[in-house]
Design a protein around this nucleic acid. Structure first.
Ligand SMILES: [Mn+2]
Ligand SMILES: [Mn+2]
Ligand SMILES: [Zn+2]
Ligand SMILES: [Zn+2]
Lengths: 145, 145
DNA sequence: TCTCAATTGAGATTTAGTTTCAATAAGAAT
DNA sequence: ATTCTTATTGAAACTAAATCTCAATTGAGA
């Protein structure tokens, strides 16, 4: 019975593996991201720091999100625009998104089967899967009039 | 035994359904897109017209690709950058992409199972699926040193 | 043929994300 | 504790991609 490796550990390991440093800014960003329960993007995250008076540069936020993504602390999400959206992993567990072309509504879904097939395919192509972006575009029930 | 509805028909039907017109520009773009056998983006498509002296505005190309996407004439693809890439449907049949975070190499894959599950999920959520964007990010064999 | 909303071209504009570079900080080595 | 090397940061400039603006034009139904 082993204690599950916590996400901060994994994040730090990624940094080490890449020869990067665990800075105050990275600590703040890590913590903030873990506290958000919904979808967000780089700028909305930046605004949270700004609003509370914590000075972290916008560029720093942009620079670090990809690392959190790669370490699995956050996952790709979907928003109403075309910018990069994220959400904390394990808020509701991993899931993917359907985007309505009519009203931009987001429907979340999850399928273990789907996830497993992705793993299988990755193995087949000797691809080391880190994360994925899977969005279905179409029309929600309301918009199918 | 019914003749399969050709793609131009489907495109025209989409236009009609949306109250849009079948212009010369749309015709040109439709034909050009059908003639490209590889991945492309709005600008590379625009350049093809420019090079051969056919004047179609860049904005017109940008404006119309989403319609071709929605009608299924083209599908979302993946390129080396983060812009929107497309490719003609039925060049090699529908497929999705793995993107190497190391060298940006693109691996194409296809899985009927995966496609079926997407259909199932869409049905479950009463979502009318039009197209999807499914990309796996990770490291290709070479970049896993 | 008439009418009118949709479309286009050309350039300006917006948006999202990246780059630059001097100053600073992390953290390994001494 | 001090030195050293390299990564990191902030702030603003910049770039890339896509969208918007608006007057002139065109498609297609009446
Ligand atoms: Mn979500
Ligand atoms: Mn492809
Ligand atoms: Zn909708
Ligand atoms: Zn690679």
């Amino acid at each position: 019975m082993q204690k599950p490796k916590d996400q901060l550990e994994v994040f730090k390991e990624l940094l080490t593996r890449k020869g990067l440093k665990y800075t105050h800014e990275r600590e703040s960003i890590y913590e903030e991201v873990r506290a958000i329960n919904h979808h967000f993007n780089a700028d909305s995250l930046y605004e949270r720091f700004k609003k509370r008076g914590e000075r972290i540069a916008r560029a720093t936020v942009y620079r670090n999100l990809p690392l959190l993504l790669e370490s699995g602390v956050v996952q790709k999400s979907a928003g109403n625009g075309k910018r990069d959206f994220y959400e904390r992993t394990r808020t509701k567990g991993h899931h993917d998104h359907m985007v309505c072309l009519g009203c931009r509504k987001i429907i979340e879904f999850h399928s273990d089967e789907l996830e497993q097939i992705q793993e299988q395919l990755s193995r087949k192509y000797k691809f080391k899967l880190v994360f994925h972006d899977h969005r279905l575009f179409g029309y929600c029930e309301k918009c199918q009039s």
